[in-house]
Simulated assay, not measured.
Amino acid sequence: MHCEITVQSAAFDLGTEEKALRQYAGDAGALVAFQGMVRAFDEATTLAALYLQHYPGVTEAEIRRIAMQAAQRWEISACRVIHRVGALAAGEPIVLVLVTAGHRAAAFAAAEYLMDYLKTEAPFWKREDFVDGTHRWVEAKSSDQAASERWHG
């Protein structure tokens, strides 16, 4: 299985990434794409920016490890994960997960598995900066934790 993992500050283009991944897809019959964007609102507060930090090398290795676990669970032919770091404004793309597989069920499941991991356990530290000048560090939401627990066991 071919898998590319990138952590970067620069924006990415979904179409360009999808086209690049297809060269490794073989005879895959499915390609699932998930692109997450920074939301502007968190409860009653308006977000000015989301700031993400990571440990270079460690973060990529951890994401690769979970991608390899996905490949052991489902027959996927290729995957591409891009996660952005640094200061991101509301509305900007923050994460991209692409998965190709012979059939849609495997592609959907593997993509969802990767996203659940990225939301709950990937080694990123996120700080929300609000328009009123306040900020807070983000913890995984209980709903994200519950979603990821279905993969254990």
Score class of each variant (00 low, 15 high):
residue 3 C to G: 12
residue 5 I to F: 03
residue 7 V to L: 08
residue 9 S to N: 09
residue 9 S to L: 07
residue 12 F to L: 08
residue 12 F to Q: 04
residue 20 A to T: 01
residue 21 L to R: 00
residue 21 L to V: 03
residue 22 R to K: 11
residue 24 Y to F: 13
residue 25 A to P: 07
residue 25 A to H: 03
residue 28 A to V: 07
residue 30 A to G: 08
residue 32 V to E: 03
residue 33 A to L: 02
residue 37 M to G: 04
residue 39 R to Q: 15
residue 39 R to I: 14
residue 45 T to E: 14
residue 46 T to D: 14
residue 48 A to F: 00
residue 50 L to Q: 05
residue 54 H to W: 12
residue 55 Y to M: 02
residue 56 P to F: 10
residue 58 V to F: 09
residue 61 A to P: 00
residue 61 A to C: 02
residue 61 A to D: 12
residue 62 E to C: 00
residue 63 I to T: 03
residue 64 R to V: 15
residue 64 R to H: 14
residue 66 I to E: 12
residue 68 M to L: 11
residue 74 W to F: 13
residue 74 W to S: 05
residue 74 W to L: 06
residue 77 S to I: 04
residue 79 C to T: 10
residue 79 C to N: 02
residue 80 R to C: 14
residue 80 R to L: 13
residue 81 V to I: 14
residue 82 I to R: 08
residue 83 H to G: 04
residue 83 H to Y: 11
residue 87 A to W: 10
residue 90 A to R: 07
residue 91 G to C: 13
residue 93 P to H: 01
residue 93 P to Y: 01
residue 95 V to C: 02
residue 96 L to H: 07
residue 99 V to W: 08
residue 99 V to A: 03
residue 102 G to C: 08
residue 103 H to G: 01
residue 105 A to S: 09
residue 109 A to L: 06
residue 110 A to W: 10
residue 113 Y to E: 08
residue 115 M to I: 10
residue 115 M to T: 09
residue 116 D to Q: 04
residue 117 Y to N: 12
residue 117 Y to G: 11
residue 118 L to Y: 01
residue 120 T to Y: 00
residue 123 P to I: 15
residue 126 K to I: 05
residue 127 R to T: 14
residue 128 E to I: 05
residue 130 F to V: 08
residue 131 V to T: 15
residue 135 H to W: 00
residue 136 R to F: 15
residue 137 W to F: 11
residue 138 V to D: 11
residue 140 A to Q: 09
residue 143 S to C: 08
residue 145 Q to V: 03
residue 147 A to Q: 12
residue 148 S to G: 12
residue 151 W to N: 06
residue 153 G to K: 05
